[in-house]
Every structure is written in structure tokens, then in C-alpha cells.
Design a protein around this nucleic acid. Structure first.
Length: 809
RNA sequence: GCCGGCGUGGUGGAAUUGGUAGACACGCAGGACUUAAAAUCCUGUGGCAGUAAUGCCGUAUCGGUUCAAGUCCGAUCGCCGGUACCA
């Protein structure tokens, strides 16, 4: 019988569904395994090959775990809120609800057609009110704990999306999503205080099994630096002022070398002391140019620093009372530290360049460099620092901080790159922020019994040109009563960002239908943490950081467990796959028209072929180009496998085949555990090529092969398993064992080198020990003799099972 | 600039982590089957020289350590990803 992929795939997909083969059982006695993949955004284009790579990998892992006797939870859902759905709605004037439902159906169809062993009974969508009720509930809990607050600040404003963006969503000065121009705009925003968790987000990385590069990305993003905050008094020539400039520095030991100060153009002191600045009109001009510049322009100015001195004002160095000039310059950012720096040109390269340009004194206070050439940024012994002279940097730092603290001139402090998280979007297709504003009582959360706050129907999904949310147009919904004084009040019209639903979804999978609480604590205790989370490289920083933050918060309020080994971390292991590129190695994109939709391949070759190709195409963690011919090669392999069935008989197993099957079981198992799927597949190819050469194949051997093939090509494996006379699905059948001794070849061929060059090889019994007789035998071999000639053997090295190396002179 | 990763045949890639470089697959060439093509099967396939045996060269480049280097060390070049005036 010919291999008919589509027929057997449909048959088994139906079987799995009818028999709930992949249902995860709460509280089961078997050891649990929670495997997680990132749920997709259901776009109009359907699944792409990248989704399949990630999902197939975790599917292979989960199927193997299930065969090994684990109670596996492998869930799927849809992250369906977001801009693309909304932009599509604006374009076509269709409600996002409708397009989203259609897209979800299409995604589910494609996922089921690929044969993933998801527990579909736990399916969730972030747009389902039963789900986002709890997204809103989390927000309210954060508000109650003071972690959600409203703040008016300069936000990044995408002129194209007409939406506020978090700093994290601005890439090189442009909108992360649409690439549009980003400008600064003042706006009232809900903020989440993720900075309160900064230290815990760093410390938590210690005990979890993430790739080292991911850990580094996480901690670099948080960007913790320890240093000191120091106050400089400001002195005006014109009037008595009591203003102070606070600076943050990681090098308080260079304080005596501060010869000027620089403040950011946005710094509020400029407005306060306007009348004291003699050259104010010049300054104002500079500020105007600076604030007009987008970040991208500020950054691309060839590193040439510009700035202007504030005439009429001086700052006083708190340790030596020196009066130093103050500059405004756009290389200092309001968003980091205090927006003011003490410039130490001798020991900071940017300050050095600035001082050279504006002819400011460069005073060396740390010895060891040549400050006439460049700033010396290393540590060293202090000089020109009065009573601190001669101290090592570390000791100096401690002493000067103590000194400043005693005199109330400064203090030790910690600074982070991480900003609080802007959580408001003035858009339509998101979770409404469940807050009510009463003119008398202020901001109050919607009573929890009234959740969810459902997204109201509106006719126009477009944000207002003033940047207000489309929800302001839903007047009936907008006007409500104050939960406290019962007076008239208004609802918050901003919605939550895309991240809101995706930063806790993995918790909900453990109890997806609970309408009483976010999750039944007993179920969460059973299933969490996630044992293995695989996803895209692009989510290694933000999504991971946000969801770790939310988990820690939920653990603090006792909604989810803290674990014995990894504490309040949600994922014990995280891996990431490489991207799949279009043919020729270019990034797939709609605009290039080279996006590969798996549907065509699923129809033509079947899911098993596509699955194996995705695993075989290259190392899992590297980007790789799609190759149509490679798909065909895998299809050939599966046909060969299928045809082997005709040769299966009950018979004795030859020694060679016994060795090969045990070796294969070992290698395929180990390779799956290490995500080395490509070599697992090639091992199966080697096995199949060998079996193909036999005239008859032992049933026992073939059964074992079918079992190791099953995670990769589950449909074909089930069909062949049944044909071998088995009644039930192999999904929970035992993963085969291997015998260590049988997996080991009993002969090895090793090379014989003469002066480092391989001249001969010899077959030896495995584990043959070096011996004199063997040495004599080797030295008598014809090729060896020929290569030694008349030279003297000075060394004879025999490394067991590896090499024989002869050194001659 | 800084941080991380990588560089192996015509192509994707393997190499037990210092021990016969090129597994497996794609492609290509030749052959079988066929009226023919597709599919399938067989053979060959790193480069150079040679009928061959074999020899020399070969893992981005240069140098080092070692009996032995794709693997370790140093320098250089190139590519990819992250980040960007972070005080």
C-alpha cells in the first residue's frame, strides 16, 4: 500500500480528539510535566513556518515525556488583542471581534492539522471576557498595592499609530510596530511600578535554567548600577537661590575632578531659574532644537557633543566648594538617573570630548592614565583629592559616601535603566482598564463583583486626533456612578497594552474555566512552575521580564505558589528557537512577498513531513532558510519508512541490527532532551537506510523504531503501530529502553598517525588496552613501516578507542 | 562603540567536546527501468595531480600550545543578533 499522508493524518487527528488522548489530568499521581509554547497572535495570514518550528519542537518533547510516563500539560491559546486586528478593523470597518473569531478558527484548524498534542479542552483567548476579567482583576490588585499609578509625563508618541508607546517599544527612535516617527508628548498614563521588583528580577535569574544569553539580556535590560547621589548647590550672580542639582554617579571617587556640570534640556530647573540665566534666549533656542529632535536624531549626531553654558549660574562642588560652570547639553538624558551629571572630563570619555571642545579644565584625580590623550576610566590611586589622596578606588568610594552621608550632601544609591511600565493605550482593541474617576473621590477601581468591564461597542475604532481613546465615544458606557459616593463618575477610557493578557496566560491554563477566582490555588500548586518554556528570541527580553514581574506580584499576594527550588519564578527552563528565513536566507516579510504559508506543504506532503523537515533543517537555535527541496527529501525518507512495513516478520535479531537499534534509541532520546532534533532525525535515517538493505526486518526492532519515530511523525507512527497489531494509541505507550552494552559497538576503527598525519587505520575490539604486543603489531604494518622508513620511533601513543600516534625522528 | 553568537564541500549541516574532518540530507554527474518523462533504484561526488596505488593541500586569515587543533590560546578580517551618548 502506498503512503497516503492525508488519509492517515485525518484519521488519527480524529482519534486523538475523540479519545481525549492528550488531556492533562489534574492531581494525577504520575509526575507532572508542563511544557509551554508562546501562544500566537491570530493574524489574517495564518500560521507561519516559525510557529510550527517552535510548536513541533515542544510537541516532540511533550510526546516523549508522555510516553515516558509523565502527566503532561501542553496547552494552547490565542493572544488576540492588538493593533493589527484593530488596524484591519479601521481599514475594512469590520468589528475586530468578527475578524478575530475568523482568524482564531483558521489558526485552530491549521494547528489541529499539524497534529500537535495540545490539550484543547484548556484553550483560552485573551479577548474572551471570562479571561480578561482576570487580567483586569490583576490590575486592580496592583492598584491596591500601590503598584499602579497615574502619572503625567512625556511619553513616546507614535505619530503614525497615534498611540503612546513604552520606552521598551521604541526601537532606535522609531515605533517598534510600524516604524513610524516617535515624538515626545505629555499625557496622563497608567504606570506599573516594575522598578520595585528590579532587584528581585535580577536575583531570580540565579536558580533558573535559562540560556545564559537570555539571563544576560534580562539583567542588562534592568541595568542595575550602584553609586551615589550627590547634591550640588546652585549659585546665582543675580539673586539668592536655594536650588540644588542632584546627580547620580557610579564614580563618587572622582568628585574632586568635577570641573563642570551638565543638565538635560528637559530639566525643570531651567524654567525655575529662567530669570537668573543671562543668556536665556540663547538657551531657549538650544532647548527648542533639542526637544524637537527625535531620539534617533539625537543619537546619530556623529557623537559630536553640543551644549551651551548657563551664564550667571554656577554650581558648587560640595567637597571643595569650588564654583564650576553649568551647561545644558542634549547628550544628557532626562530619562536616566537624575537628568544631571557631574562632569569629570579626566575620567569619562564623553565629558573629556566636551571639555576639549569648550576648553574646560581636565583635572586628573585618578592616577594611571594619560589624560592628555583620552579619559582614563579605569580604577587607580586617588590624587588631587585632599585627604582622600592615595586611596584605592573601592576604598575611596566607601569613604566618600560615608563622608557625604555624614554631611548630608549625598547618599549611596542604586540606579536602574529599567523604567516603570506605561500601561495605557489610547486604542480600542484591548482590555478596558477597570478604573473609575470621580471628581470627589478620585480614581477608584471598579468593584470586583462588577468585573469584567466589557469592551463597549463603538462605530468608529479610530483613535481621536487628540490622541484620546475611541472609548470616549461610547458615552453610555463612559458615564457611570462612583463606587464610593454613588455620585456621577466617568470610566477610564484607555485600554491595556498587548502584553497585559500574555504575561499571565500560562497560569490560567492550569485552571482555564474557573469563574470564581483567577486560578484554584491547589491546581496552580500542582502544575506550576512551567517546566519548559520555548519561544522566539524576540521575546527573550520584554515578554519574559513582564511575565516574571507579574508572577512575582501574584506570588506576593498568594494567588500562585512560591516554589521550593526556584522561588517566585514562573519558568524553570527557557529555550528559544532560531528564525526561519525565506528561500535564499532573507527575512520573510509580507512586503517582500516571500512569506511561506505551511498550508500548501501540509496538503502536498502531509503534516509528518513538514514536522520532520522543520526539525531536520538545521540546529534548532539558529536561523535557517527554508528549502523546498529539503522538504522533498524528508518526504522520500517517510515513504521509505512506510515501505519497510512489507518486510516485517517475526525473526531473530542480528547482532548488527541489535546494536544499531539500541544506539538509535539512545541517541534519539538524548538528542530530543537537548533539542538537537536535526541529529536525532539523521540517526533515524541511518537506521532506516540499514533496515532498507535487509530482506526481512524483525517485528520487535520495527516496533521499537516506530516508538522513537512517534514524537516526530505521530500520524504515521500510530498507523504503523496499529498495523503491527496493537489496539491502543502509542501516545502513552512506553518509550523504549536501550541497553548500554548493546548500544556500544564491539569493534572500533581507529586511525594510526605518524608524526601527526593519518597513514593507516586498524579495527580493534572496543576497549582494547594498549599493550606491547599490539605496539609491535602496529609497527610491523606495511603502511606504517613505509612511513617510518629509517627514522627512529621516539614515542608511541595509544589512546584507548581513539587514536594511535607514532612520533619518529 | 559596547555586549553576545557565528565563520567547515556547490548547498543545509555533522564531528563522541583535543583523537581518521565532511555523518545525514539536498544538489549535481553517470547508469538501470521506461517509447519518453516523472517517480524509484544503483554508483560516484572537498580541491589539485595520477589509469591506479597513492601523494600534497584543506574547517575565514595569521601566529601559538600539543604526539595530535574545526575544537584550546593570542591577533586580524567578515557576517548575524541585541543595545545604544546610561553618567
Amino acid at each position: 500500500m502506498k503512503y497516503q499522508a492525508n488519509k492517515i493524518e485525518k484519521k488519527w487527528q480524529k482519534y486523538w480528539e475523540d479519545n481525549n488522548t492528550f488531556e492533562a489530568k489534574d492531581y494525577d499521581k504520575r509526575e507532572k510535566f508542563y511544557g509551554l509554547v508562546e501562544f500566537p497572535f491570530p493574524s489574517g495570514e495564518g500560521l507561519h513556518t516559525g510557529h510550527l518550528r517552535s510548536y513541533t519542537a515542544m510537541d516532540v518533547i511533550c510526546r516523549k515525556k508522555r510516553m515516558q510516563g509523565f502527566n503532561v500539560l501542553f496547552p494552547m491559546g490565542m493572544d488576540a488583542f492588538g493593533l493589527p486586528a484593530e488596524n484591519y478593523a479601521i481599514k475594512t470597518n469590520t468589528h475586530p471581534q468578527i475578524t478575530t473569531r475568523k482568524n482564531i478558527d483558521n489558526f485552530v484548524r491549521q494547528l489541529k492539522g499539524t497534529g500537535f498534542a495540545f490539550d484543547w479542552s484548556r484553550f483560552i483567548s485573551t479577548t474572551d471576557p471570562e479571561y480578561y476579567k482576570w487580567t483586569q482583576w490583576i490590575f486592580i490588585q496592583m492598584f491596591k498595592k500601590g503598584l499602579a499609578y497615574k502619572s503625567s509625563e512625556n511619553i513616546n508618541w507614535c505619530t503614525s499609530c497615534k498611540i503612546g508607546l513604552a520606552n521598551e517599544e521604541v526601537v532606535a527612535g522609531a515605533c517598534e510596530r510600524c516604524g513610524g516617527e516617535v515624538i515626545k508628548k505629555e499625557k496622563e498614563q497608567w504606570m506599573l511600578k516594575i522598578t520595585d521588583y528590579a532587584d528581585r528580577l535580577i536575583d531570580g535569574l540565579d536558580n533558573i535554567n535559562f540560556l545564559e544569553t537570555i539571563k544576560k539580556q534580562q539583567s542588562d535590560w534592568i541595568g542595575k548600577s550602584e553609586g551615589a547621589e550627590i547634591q550640588f548647590k546652585v549659585k546665582s550672580q543675580k539673586s539668592k537661590v536655594s536650588e540644588e542639582l542632584k546627580v547620580f554617579t557610579t564614580r563618587p571617587d572622582t568628585l574632586f575632578g568635577a570641573t563642570f556640570m551638565v543638565i538635560a534640556p528637559e530639566h525643570p530647573i531651567l524654567r525655575k531659574l529662567e530669570s537668573d540665566i543671562k543668556n536665556i534666549s540663547e538657551i531657549k533656542e538650544y532647548i527648542e532644537i533639542a526637544t524637537k529632535k527625535t531620539d534617533i536624531e539625537r543619537a546619530s549626531e556623529d557623537k559630536a557633543k553640543t551644549g551651551i553654558e548657563l551664564k550667571g549660574l554656577k554650581a558648587i562642588n560640595p567637597v571643595n566648594k569650588e564654583e564650576i560652570p553649568i551647561f545644558v547639553a542634549d547628550y544628557v538624558m532626562m530619562g536616566y538617573g537624575t537628568g544631571v551629571i557631574m562632569a569629570v572630563p579626566a575620567h569619562d570619555q564623553r565629558d573629556w570630548e566636551f571639555a576639549k571642545k569648550y576648553n574646560i579644565e581636565i583635572r586628573e584625580v585618578i592616577s594611571g592614565g594619560d589624560i592628555s590623550q583620552a579619559a582614563y576610566i579605569e580604577e587607580g590611586l586617588a590624587i588631587n583629592s585632599e585627604k582622600f589622596n592615595g586611596l584605592e578606588t573601592e576604598e575611596f568610594k566607601e569613604k566618600i559616601i560615608k563622608y557625604l552621608e555624614d554631611k548630608k550632601l549625598g547618599k549611596a544609591t542604586v540606579n536602574y535603566k529599567l523604567h516603570d511600565w506605561i500601561f495605557s493605550r489610547q486604542r480600542y482593541w484591548g482590555e478596558p482598564i477597570p478604573m473609575i474617576n470621580c471628581t470627589k473621590c478620585g480614581w477608584l477601581p471598579v468593584p470586583e463583583d462588577d468585573l469584567p468591564v466589557e469592551l463597549p461597542q463603538v462605530d468608529d475604532f479610530r483613535p481621536g486626533d487628540d490622541g484620546e481613546s475611541p472609548l470616549t465615544k461610547a458615552t453610555e458606557w463612559l458615564n457611570t456612578t462612583c463606587p464610593k459616593c454613588k455620585g456621577s463618575a466617568k470610566r477610564e477610557t484607555d485600554v491595556m497594552p498587548n502584553w497585559a493578557g500574555s504575561n499571565w496566560y500560562f497560569i490560567r491554563y492550569t485552571d482555564p474555566k474557573n469563574d470564581k477566582e483567577l486560578v484554584d490555588r491547589k491546581k496552580a500548586d500542582y502544575w506550576l512552575p512551567v517546566d519548559w518554556y520555548n519561544g522566539g528570541m524576540e521575546h527573550n527580553t520584554l515578554h519574559l521580564l513582564y511575565s516574571r514581574f507579574v508572577y512575582k506580584f501574584l506570588a506576593d499576594i498568594n494567588v500562585v505558589p512560591k516554589h521550593k527550588d526556584i522561588g517566585d519564578e514562573p519558568y524553570s527552563k527557557r529555550t528559544a528557537q532560531g528564525m526561519i528565513l525565506g528561500e535564499g536566507g532573507v527575512k520573510m516579510s509580507k512586503s517582500k512577498g516571500n512569506v511561506i504559508n505551511p498550508d500548501g506543504y501540509l496538503d502536498k506532503y502531509g503534516a509528518d513531513t513538514v514536522r520532520i523537515y522543520e526539525m531536520f533543517m538545521g540546529p534548532f537555535d539558529q536561523s535557517i532558510a527554508w528549502d523546498d527541496k529539503g522538504v522533498n527529501g524528508v518526504y522520500r525518507f517517510l515513504n521509505k519508512v512506510w515501505d519497510l512495513q512489507d518486510k516485517v516478520v517475526e525473526k531473530e535479531i542480528s547482532k548488527e541490527v541489535q546494536n544499531l537499534i539500541h544506539k538509535s534509541i539512545k541517541k534519539v532520546g538524548e538528542d530530543i532532551d537537548n533539542m538537537r532534533f536535526n541529529t536525532a532525525v539523521s540517526q533515524m535515517m541511518i537506521l532506516v537506510n540499514a533496515l532498507d538493505k535487509e530482506s526481512e526486518i524483525s517485528k520487535e526492532v520495527f516496533e521499537r523504531f516506530v516508538l522513537i519515530l512517534a514524537p516526530f511523525a505521530p500520524h504515521m507512527a500510530e498507523e504503523m503501530w496499529q498495523a503491527l497489531g496493537n489496539k491502543n494509541s502509542l501516545a502513552s505507550f512506553a518509550w523504549p529502553d536501550y541497553d548500554k552494552n548493546l548500544a556500544q559497538d564491539d569493534k572500533v576503527i581507529i586511525g594510526i598517525q605518524v608524526n601527526g598525519k593519518v597513514r593507516d587505520d586498524i579495527e580493534l575490539d572496543f576497549d582494547t588496552e594498549p599493550s606491547e604486543s599490539l605496539q609491535a603489531e602496529i609497527l610491523a604494518r606495511e603502511k606504517v613501516v613505509r612511513n617510518i622508513k629509517d627514522k627512529e620511533v621516539v614515542k608511541f601513543i595509544h589512546i584507548r578507542n581513539k587514536i594511535i600516534s607514532i612520533v619518529v625522528k
